[in-house]
Design a protein around this nucleic acid. Structure first.
Lengths: 134, 134
DNA sequence: TACATTCAGGAACTTGAATACCGAAATAAA
DNA sequence: TTTATTTCGGTATTCAAGTTCCTGAATGTA
């Protein structure tokens, strides 16, 4: 796994959303997306339920149904998607979420928080519209 | 949790090693370290077993026993310790460890791998001797 | 209307990493 | 030699993410 904390679910969300963005304005079904991504249909369905509740996508039931973007692709960032699935991450404070520390001045937070900030800014800069041609 | 992937075990290893470095040349017991770090004695013991096998520390049994550094503190980096505990991380390639991808040119690896490289370099730059005064 | 397709969502199961437990072995000190 | 202390290492447990299963609800098509 990577040094950056991105869950399987978040990966599915990001890739799935990018596929939908690429096919706009057509909507895509979970079944199609799962095949395309070589992923579990059940898991992908759960992920898109969350994205739907977060209003990032709109769901349409029945034949010819599926999911479509709820906003223009250039108004949805990597971070918007990521936070819906792996949403409990903290940027500042103790990198390990501890109350007590044996050190007076934290030996890790300075560098780790710099990197966390970098990750946030990078994710926040990447828009779905950037992936349309990929 | 932080955006950077550091397990509880790796955190214990890093903090424990820093404490030992600070007390050199005295060796410290798991019991003492666990109290100092408000951590599980059992887990800390496991972590130090691994560090011991990796020759980063030397173990001494019996009363007055404990763990001590096996090399000078300025020759042990954050990365040396980290990789022993969370050692299966990959820097290049697919950030999600996938074989197949629905995109011709990976939409994520460029930025994520840049950040992973940054994390590696940062960890590799931090030496135990840097924490002695903390 | 009847039917096939698709999303919604609860619940149970699986799996692997992380964490905890416990008896054994080593050793310093009394 | 006995006792207390400490690491060693196998095993067991816990926990959360991922997965599967199932029933229900919406909706286009014949």
């Amino acid at each position: 796994m990577s040094l950056v904390n991105v869950s399987e679910g978040a990966s599915l969300a990001l890739h799935g959303m990018a596929l939908i963005a690429r096919q706009q304005p057509q909507r895509l079904s979970v079944k199609y997306l799962a095949e395309k991504l070589h992923a579990s249909q059940a898991h992908l369905a759960k992920v898109f339920q969350k994205l739907s509740k977060a209003k990032l996508v709109k769901s349409v039931r029945g034949p010819t149904g599926g999911f479509q973007l709820n906003k223009p692709a250039d108004q949805i960032t990597f971070w918007d998607i990521f936070r819906v699935i792996d949403g409990d991450k903290e940027l500042g404070g103790c990198p390990f979420g501890k109350e007590y520390c044996a050190f007076h001045t934290c030996i890790f937070s300075k560098e780790l928080n710099r990197i966390s900030q970098d990750i946030y800014e990078t994710f926040n800069k990447m828009k779905l519209s950037d992936f349309v041609g990929s």
